[in-house]
Design a protein around this nucleic acid. Structure first.
Length: 419
DNA sequence: TCTGGGGTCCTAGGACCC
DNA sequence: TCTGGGGTCCTAGGACCC
């Protein structure tokens, strides 16, 4: 049976959300979407990259991911606004709540993108195009921001379609429209063709999605291995994946941070690793999982990076245990180059039940588990910094670092954002 | 490049075994 | 050791997405 899939994508999400919020709060009367503006990190903390841009900023050639320094060179009058992740989560939730009024399954692909399956809903809500207009306008009216909607028979084509002309537009990309609407685009525009793959394709004389679609699959395999099959299928509009309810169980949990100065001593590095371990382990316990693998990542000031990982003899969620592994990994891996960024990650996760405890450390495990539990309770109740490790006092470093944007903010319901 | 941070998946190459 | 070949497992690094 032919499916009907929608892909909804918020236009310049972070920027639209901030603009909508400012208009509603009447911070000032300027709509950030109508002037050259970006959402960007703090340059003094070396977080200075463009996270989202307005359409006027795009006209100056400003790209997501580039440094704010270079964006300012392209447009000296550029307005730079810091990100407000709590607000972004609330706006995202408000949009998803609207979808849930109509769809039993909402696949939240990212903070600002969803897939919906409209296949069986035609006779309830009209043609796909009619319903797309309805839901797009509803979001704009109730939440104040615009979206693009792509419609097709599979997720890949729906996603490609939503990326066509912006903002506030609906596009179809049905299989019979592929040649006309998609094949003339540069290969870089195809989902799953990134910088590295597109430059390799260009060297092979392949510049458009159409050329890729008509390239011999064996040639692609010889250069790209299994990824060659993926991009060849996508260029031909082939995708069988279905719309799935999101986040089954995470495969791993990690946090990393770029430090505002170059770290030159193991002592400082380990303090930062501790703050990262604290948040990662809290998140791990929060989703009721234990980890079997611990990895670290070190990016030097010259931007070279290295990683190191270790399998644990026993799965754990204990901060102290994971931290001591992190320290061992760091000592084994660090090449003494000044450090720009540190990251840790736990993976090979198992549900926090039926864990075999070795007889020897049974007592310690119990003790540390109780300790972590008390700390988590205090932090949940009184805030993240209600209890911190003494080693951070007077260190000038944050005792907890990274983490998902949660905090103790109430989730804004879709009504809260209404005009 | 004055170049963030959260993820997932794949692969080359080495270790080890028979 | 002037050493074959196949299989499995593991790790580091790199690709991609947002």
């Amino acid at each position: 049976m032919k499916r009907t899939i929608f892909h909804i994508d918020v236009n310049s999400a972070y920027l639209s959300w901030e603009a909508t919020y400012r208009l509603q709060q009447q911070v000032d009367c300027i709509d950030l979407r109508k002037i050259p503006s970006i959402i960007g990190g703090d340059q003094s903390k070396r977080h200075g990259i463009v996270l989202a841009k307005s359409i006027p900023a795009k006209k100056y050639g400003i790209k997501t991911g580039e440094s704010i320094f270079s964006a300012r060179q392209k447009c000296p009058s550029l307005v730079v606004v810091p990100p407000n992740y709590q607000l972004f989560m609330q706006c995202s939730d408000a949009m998803v709540n609207i979808f849930r009024e109509y769809f039993p399954i909402v696949e939240r692909y990212s903070i600002d993108e969803c897939f919906l399956d409209y296949t069986t809903m035609n006779h309830h809500f009209g043609s796909p195009m009619q319903f797309a207009h309805y839901i797009k306008d509803k979001i704009q009216k109730e939440l104040g921001f615009t979206v693009n909607i792509g419609i097709s028979n599979n997720k890949l084509l729906a996603k490609m379609a939503s990326d066509f002309e912006k903002p506030n537009k609906i596009h179809t990309l049905y299989p019979h429209e592929i040649q006309e609407k998609m094949w003339h685009l540069p290969v870089r525009d195809l989902f799953m063709v990134g910088r590295a793959t597109s430059s390799k394709l260009n060297k092979l004389g392949i510049y458009t999605i159409g050329e890729l679609a008509n390239t011999d699959i064996n040639l692609l395999y010889s250069h790209f291995k299994s990824h060659g099959y993926v991009i060849h299928n996508f260029a031909n509009g082939l995708d069988k994946s279905s719309v799935k309810p999101c986040s089954p169980t995470p495969k791993g949990i990690g946090n990393s941070t770029t430090i505002s100065f170059d770290v030159e001593t193991s002592r400082t590095a380990k303090l930062i690793l501790l703050s990262l371990t604290e948040t990662v382990c809290m998140r791990l316990r929060d989703c009721d999982m234990k980890a079997n693998m611990v990895s670290i990542n070190i990016k030097s000031s010259d931007f070279s990076s290295l990683s190191h990982q270790m399998h644990l003899s026993q799965s754990t969620d204990i901060t102290n245990t994971i931290y001591s592994t992190v320290c061992t990994l760091f000592d084994e891996a660090w090449n003494n180059k000044p450090i720009r960024q540190l990251g840790i990650r736990v993976s090979t996760l198992v549900p926090n039940e039926n864990i075999q405890l070795s007889l020897f450390d049974y007592k310690n495990t119990e003790k540390y588990t109780a300790l972590d539990k008390s700390i988590d309770t205090i932090r949940t109740k009184y805030g993240k910094n209600a209890i911190i490790r003494a080693s951070f006092l007077h260190s000038g470093l944050k005792p907890l670092c990274g983490g998902m944007p949660e905090e103790n903010y109430p989730i804004m319901s879709s009504t809260t954002l209404r005009n």
